[in-house]
Every structure is written in structure tokens, then in C-alpha cells.
Design a protein around this nucleic acid. Structure first.
Lengths: 222, 222
DNA sequence: CACAAAAATTAAGGCTAGCTTAAGGCGCAC
DNA sequence: GTGCGCCTTAAGCTAGCCTTAATTTTTGTG
């Protein structure tokens, strides 16, 4: 899962990123609303964490612009002002949820999970495919009744694939999922992670599309 | 599927080509409107990606000339100017859709798919013929309930044939489909691919028209 | 029926994307 | 500070795809 955080308070932003990283999210960060708008237009994110009260293009206007573009991205508003009017304005402008600063980081995590779940159009919290089950809440993967230890990257990959079995993910997409804008990975790290997943689960789970990317087949069997 | 990209910004053009290749499109590229007009007159493309604001013959004039020729090619306009007047002019001149730069590459892909689907006059995304089903989204082919592994070239060929069962495709057309202008294939590669398709599916699927090309019979049976 | 042209068949070889493996470094926790 | 585990890197390997080319079969024609 790839999130975009738009927040002008540097230390808060750092804190949020550090807190979300262990959850397996890739969090890109921008402090400026105008930049954020371009970012959203050109890249694919799963969720937007938006601070109201930004310099440049303010949060509410940004949100309106995004919705005007027809983007259906889930947006979670962070706001210091607890004025009711503000919250209502935010929700009216197309936000999906809001959180008042200062907030508890665990609540943030919970709400992010809820929004992602909702946007995927799912009621239950865990993803299942045959004998494989992935639970985003506690980062657990169970295969054939046995818990499987996956690392952060492995989990992130499997999570993405499992979100849309049968959908083709290009190598590019998966790399961005793992690395965001941070580093430029000039190696075969992605392939290594795929390899580890196949080893820990079963080889035929992930099908390679040569020159394209990877798919998780709906009827994959060990 | 063979697309023609007319764009004078080299790096953007490269980017688009790289992004579309994994989707299975063959993308030929021209930077000049005049050349493009000749290209379109003499070759067969499935879709045109057209940058407005070209040197030589500008995009709008090119589009008008194409339509004047009676060509029914789907045209997707790319434009940096977001002036409403421009878009309207583009659509009036016969464009089928437009995208404003800078655009999201995934949106470009989605719109290309939509246009191709529309131009093929189909609602569903997967192509079916008897017990054979081809899904362009996830590059999968199913025959008699069993998934069939096709390579990139085989898939591209079958995709083309399946798009218009009963339509005769010349050898020349199919070769250009696979190779564009890039390389010149001086061998019987096409025949070999056809052979492989017949082997993996069933021989009578593709009928040979000696001296002309190939057809996929509408009522082909194993 | 014989011949030529076209297409089918088959196998081989090169190439490249992806796989595998191992090592080193870095960060994090204790 | 130290140890452990995860991640990246890199190098060598594998396998599958594509083309080529030689040979055989088919088809159409005189």
C-alpha cells in the first residue's frame, strides 16, 4: 500500500512516517499542496493523508480540486482545529474520514485500515485465497493452518497481489509500491522478494508474465 | 494492437512507449505531422495518440486531414494547453477523447483500452469464440476451461485475429502488427507463431488463405 | 501428372528476462 | 555496544522465447 502524506509540520510528518512504516505502508511525503496535486495526478496512491491548513494551496481547496478531477482516492483529513464547521467542510469536500490533532497513532492506523478496506469494497478484514489468508491488522499470514513469517517487503507485496487476484501488476507498479520516491532501486530486489514469497508459500502462487510483471491466479493451487 | 504516437517531445515519447509496451501494444513513433499523415495513409493502425502543437503540420490540421480522408481511426489527443477552446476544437475535428498534459500514465492506459474497446464495438473486455476466451486485461487465454500459456507474440497474434473473427488478415498486416517498423524480419517467424498457436489450441482455428494471409473462422471447432 | 510456389514442420542456436544464491551492510532492538 | 535479521546488491545460472534455416508437405497450375 502506498500512501501520500501532505503535512507541513516536519516533525509530525516524520513521526507519522516512522509509525506507518512497520505496518508495511510506503509513505511518500509532500509539504506543499500544489506539489501534492501534481503528485496525485501522475502517480498511483492508495490513500491520502491530508493536513488542513497548508501553505500554498490549502488543504480544502486541494481536496476539492482532486475530486473535481474525478479521482476516487480515499482521503483522511488531519486537522488541528476542532471546529465543527471545519470537519463538515472537509467531509463535504469529499473527505472520507477525519482525525483531530493531537491524535493517537494507533487510532490513525486503525482508520487507515478501515478506509483501505472500504475502498477495496470489502467487509471483512482479512484477505483469503484458497488455503492462504492474510490479515492486515496484525500482519499475519496463514497458509494451510500454519502461520508463515513474512518480512515487511514480502508482506507488502503479497498484500498488493492478494488485493486483486487475477489482476496483472507491472514490475514498475510493484517497485513503486515498495519504494515510493525514496530510493531508486537499480537491482533485482523485487525478483528476490518474489522468490522468497514463492519459497515460503508455494511456487505456482505467483505467475510471471515475461516482459510484463506478475499475477496471482485466482485458482492457484500448491 | 498497433498504435501510432505523434509527439515531438522525445523523452515523453520514450516514456509513453516504455509504459505501453508491457500492455502488449506495438507503438510506432513519429515526431512530425507531415510524416505522420503519410504513415497513416499507408499503414494500418488501431489507434492514434496525437500531440496537439506539433512542428510542421500541426496536430489539429493533421486530424482534420485524416478525417477528410474518411479514416475512422480512433484518435486520442494529448495536449499541454488546457484551454477549453482547444479541447472543443479537437473534439470537433474528430478526436475521440483527449488527455491534458501532464497526465497519469495509468489513465492513459485506461483510456486507450476504452477507445479500442469502443472502436471494436464491444462492451465486454474479454474476447470469446466458442470454447476459447482471451482476456486482454490479464493476458490470459482460456480454452475448454483450461488456461493456456501463450507467449507475447502468440498472444498478440491471437488477440488480433480474435478481434475480428471472419476478417482476413494479410501476412503483411500481421507482420507489421508484431514488428512495427523496428526490425525487418526476413524469415518465416510469423508462420512459426501461427503454427504454435494451432498446436496449443486446435489446428482448424486459423485457416490459411494461400497467397493472402489468415482468417479465424467464426464457427471454428476443434 | 508434374512442377513450382507457398506454407507447414521441425530443430537448433542465441539471447535476454527472470531465478537463484550468497554475501555484505545497515538498522533496530536489547 | 553488540547481535540479529532484513534488505539490497551482484554475479552466475536457467529457461523460455524468438528467430533462423533446412526440410517436408500441401496446393494450385499448366
Amino acid at each position: 500500500m502506498r500512501l501520500l502524506l501532505i503535512e507541513d509540520d516536519t516533525s509530525l510528518a516524520e513521526g507519522i512516517r516512522t509509525a506507518l512504516k512497520p505496518e508495511g505502508y510506503t509513505v511518500d511525503w509532500l509539504a506543499d499542496g500544489q506539489q501534492a496535486f501534481h503528485g496525485i495526478k501522475n502517480e498511483v496512491f492508495d490513500l491520502l493523508l491530508l493536513d488542513l491548513g497548508l501553505p500554498g494551496l490549502d488543504g480544502l481547496s486541494l481536496l476539492k480540486k482532486i475530486r473535481a478531477e474525478g479521482k476516487n482516492l480515499p482521503v483522511l483529513i488531519l486537522t488541528a482545529r476542532d471546529a465543527i464547521a471545519d470537519r463538515i467542510a472537509g467531509l463535504d469536500a469529499g473527505a472520507d474520514d477525519y482525525l483531530i490533532k493531537p491524535f493517537d497513532i494507533t487510532e490513525l492506523k486503525a482508520r487507515i485500515r478501515a478506509l483501505l478496506r472500504r475502498s477495496a469494497g470489502r467487509a471483512q478484514t482479512s484477505l483469503q485465497l484458497g488455503e492462504l489468508e492474510l490479515n492486515p491488522q496484525n500482519q499475519q499470514v496463514i497458509f494451510q493452518q500454519q502461520p508463515v513469517n513474512l518480512t515487511r517487503r514480502e508482506f507488502a507485496l503479497l498484500h498488493e497481489l492478494l488485493n486483486q487476484p487475477g489482476h496483472v501488476f507491472t514490475r514498475d507498479h510493484l517497485q513503486q509500491l515498495l519504494y515510493g520516491w525514496e530510493e531508486d532501486v537499480e537491482s533485482n530486489a523485487l525478483e528476490v522478494h518474489i522468490h522468497h514469497l514463492r519459497k515460503k508459500l508455494f511456487p505456482s502462487l505467483i505467475r510471471t508474465l515475461r516482459g510484463i510483471g506478475y499475477v496471482l491466479d485466482k485458482d492457484a493451487q500448491p
